[in-house]
Computed example of a mutant assay.
Amino acid sequence: DKEIGPLVTKAAPRLIALPGLGPETAGQLLTSAGDNPDRLRSEAAFAHLCGAAPVPASSGRTNRHRLNRGGDRQANNALHTIVLVRMKYDQRTRDYVARRTAEGMTKKDVIRCLKRFVAREVYRHLPHMIHTTKPLPQIA
């Protein structure tokens, strides 16, 4: 914590300020994003990279989704940790969980939705140097 805290705070101060993100989870998400800069064209691509993109898993009359099992498992674990911390300490998240549970969603489905939300929020707060894309070729 003594070593990674200052490094993460210097690299992404807006990211570390988000509720539920500590130096270790923020460091893992920065590492996952930094290792794959060419894959991060949008927040949906970041969600796929973290394994937090919903995949239809319907059969018969049921209409449901599951999380993508692919992607960076350590980044997915970091998102899961953030969601669990927010479910315990963040009032907005607790209100959301109560509302979605009252609508009939299971805890597992609520966590899936929250992971996708956190992935979207984290992507917006990643340093801009990570968001670089390859330039498009010029057509003469």
Rank of each mutant, 00 (worst) to 15 (best):
L30F: 15
L84S: 03
H125R: 15
A47P: 02
L79E: 09
G22E: 02
A78W: 06
A47W: 02
A26Q: 03
P137F: 14
D90V: 07
A140Q: 15
D35W: 06
R116H: 15
R64L: 13
P23N: 04
H128I: 01
N76H: 12
N77C: 11
V55R: 13
A33C: 14
A47C: 09
Q74D: 13
N36E: 11
R14P: 01
P56F: 10
P23S: 10
R61S: 13
I111W: 01
I16R: 00
T62G: 04
F117N: 14
L15M: 09
L30Q: 11
A98F: 04
E3C: 03
I82A: 00
E24C: 02
A52T: 12
T9A: 10
G51N: 06
A78E: 02
A102E: 14
D95H: 10
G104Y: 07
L21V: 08
L126Q: 06
V122Y: 03
L79V: 07
N77D: 12
R99F: 12
T25K: 00
L49W: 01
N63T: 15
G60T: 11
A75L: 01
D35A: 14
L29N: 00
T25I: 05
V110R: 02
A33R: 04
R39T: 07
R100P: 03
A140T: 14
P56A: 15
C50E: 06
L114E: 08
P127M: 11
M129T: 12
V97T: 06
L15F: 11
G20Y: 00
L126N: 05
V122T: 08
H128E: 15
D72S: 01
H128M: 08
R120S: 14
L29F: 02
A102S: 12
P135H: 09
A11E: 12
L7D: 05
